[in-house]
């Protein structure tokens, strides 16, 4: 089984490393043909405007949306959450627009407000997850199919909707692979 890593811009190498640590193969995705024979996809942290623009320019949106609607699991991290969201505050159009959430970009403030903290993720059990938030987005609104998996300061920071998973923070930075394993279980179960 091969997990696609969207490699247009951002911290995609760390995503590959995390997936490899969990015993799966990875494939970097830059063009539509790279989407063939992958069973899941990770959209990494980076700049969502850059990643979104390149997704559009290289004609990846349509085939990707098709695959996701057919059930392929996708995990969006920080910028990846913004890419998946149906609504982005202050922006006319969404990128993939598949997840029923409204996000606010850089919602905690500029870089000097970036932070790390422990959060509880009930689905992963103990101990708490050390979460790193870098110019992170916030989820402002959620649709009715969206399950909130973790909350920080009253706002959802980890959400799931069927085959879509998204976090505001960066699980790859702390090398705690529990969220990646959770996602890879989603991939296995879909298979």
């Amino acid at each position: 089984m091969s997990i696609g890593i969207l490699a247009l811009q951002g911290a995609f190498r760390e995503q590959s490393e995390a997936v490899l640590r969990c015993g799966f193969k990875t494939k970097e995705v830059r063009k539509p043909e790279d989407l063939e024979d992958i069973q899941g996809l990770i959209v990494p942290g980076g700049e969502s405007t850059t990643i979104g623009k390149l997704l559009t320019d290289y004609k990846l949106c349509k085939p990707l949306i098709k695959k996701i609607k057919e059930g392929m699991p996708v995990f969006g991290i920080c910028a990846g959450m913004v890419i998946l969201a149906e609504e982005i505050a202050g922006q006319d159009k969404a990128w993939l627009g598949l997840m029923k959430i409204k996000v606010v970009r850089n919602a905690y403030g500029r870089q000097i407000e970036s932070f790390e903290t422990d959060i509880e993720i009930p689905a992963l059990g103990k101990p708490p997850f050390h979460a790193v938030f870098i110019r992170a987005p916030q989820v402002e609104k959620i649709g009715k199919n969206v399950e909130v998996m973790a909350v920080f300061q009253g706002r959802p920071v980890m959400v799931r909707q069927d085959n879509l998973l998204a976090t505001s923070f960066h699980p790859e930075i702390t090398k705690d692979d529990r969220i990646h394993r959770f996602f890879l279980d989603m991939v296995k179960n879909f298979k």
């Binding site: 951002g10 980076g46 110019r135």
Partner: peptide, 20 residues
């Protein structure tokens, strides 16, 4: 909650990778 740590400083640069 900790701000301005080495992890978040280095982390932003990680997010810029592959970019211009």
């Amino acid at each position: 909650m900790e701000k301005g740590t080495w992890t978040v400083k280095k982390g932003l640069a990680e997010m810029l990778k592959g970019g211009v």
